[in-house]
């Protein structure tokens, strides 16, 4: 079932501020972005083409 808590196992993938050369206080307080485009995805788990070849 869902919600297996394996936070600890994956904490190692986080990059501590010290390791990235930045103190916590020097990192942005908030990051929030979003982009948009015409939706035209048709891939599924058996096939994918990862591109957007032309502006439509």
């Amino acid at each position: 079932m869902p919600s297996t808590d394996i936070k600890q196992e994956f904490a190692q993938n986080a990059v501590p501020a010290a390791a990235s050369g930045a103190s916590v206080a020097s990192r942005p307080a908030i990051i929030a972005t979003r982009k948009r485009c015409e939706a035209d995805g048709v891939g599924l788990s058996h096939y994918v083409l990862m591109d957007r070849r032309e502006k439509r």
Binding site: G41, G43, L44
Partner: peptide, 23 residues
Amino acid sequence: MVVANFANILLAILAPTARRLMC
């Protein structure tokens, strides 16, 4: 080398309409 199914999770977050996989 793009891992497409993971890239799609990123896209779902960064630009929902840009996702390529529809699963």
